[in-house]
Amino acid sequence: MEHSKGAAGAVTDTYAKERVWLLMPTWLMLSILVVIPVLIMLVYSFLTKEFRGGVIWEFTFAAYDQFFFDRGLFGDEPVKIEWTYISIYWRSIWQAGLATVLSLLLGFPTAYYIATRPQNSRAVWVFLITIPYWVNLLIRTVSMKFLLRENGPLNDFLLMIEVIDEPLRLINTALAVQLGLFYSYLPFMVLPIYASIERYNFTLSEAASDLYATKFATLTRVILPSIKPGVIAGCILVFVPSLGAFLAPDLLGGAKNFMIGSLIEEQFKGSAGNWPFGAAASMILLSMVLILLMVFSRQQKKAQPQGGQ
């Protein structure tokens, strides 16, 4: 999201030749790990499916057609919009968005708290935040399932303190998926915000309060705009992986709470899959995310034409 400022761009290119060579490893990595896989995906999305997985090398729009349009079982009925997949995408966006908002609401105060601790205890707090993430995501999600099940510890506890009379059905609900997503990606919100708040000059808060700003005005008019890059980074880091997540929806959501990630996963699993359709679904997801990010960064630029530091 960083854009080089005018002044930096105007630096004479004394090292142009060296720069090309020094950037080589980066370009190489990006091509092998990003550009080529995406291109393969793009090509596959236009191929014809082979029934036991794999593809036949024949060009077709069938995968995209299947995603957006319903032509009946035999393809001879009047064309209708196919809502199945669009609604899965919609549910995914909604879930990912909610997970982002929730992590922001919890992550911001957490990050603020850590960043305002004395220097040497900050490292301890950051360490504590990251500890659960040393455990594999699959294990953590399964644990969550055990935690939430009908005769699991959460229900036992709620029954014991008599908040509820009978166990809550939490597993296989949108709420469970939400909890799973939120829990999986919370640190990706906390860490970048923490990094920005740590760099934040707290004299600015004093200056605001000196100029008659209430605490709320100081937060909204001075602190938040100053740490916006961290907040944006955190939101992207939570939203994007939540959108494509498949562990939480698979394990905690059941069939009713299918999300994009699970849909794509299914297409490549075993012999029931449809590779071109999976590739097309991935490309649609990728374009959607890219468009979202572009709209966002354009608005950022409009709001801050100088990109001021």
Binding site: N201, T203, L204, E206, A207, D210, P225, K228, Q304
Partner: peptide
């Protein structure tokens, strides 16, 4: 924020945004 005095800070503390 309720004292009718204002401060000029050592490093100015201008709001950068």
């Amino acid at each position: 924020n309720q004292r009718p005095v204002n401060t000029v800070f050592q490093n100015y503390a201008l709001f950068p945004h």
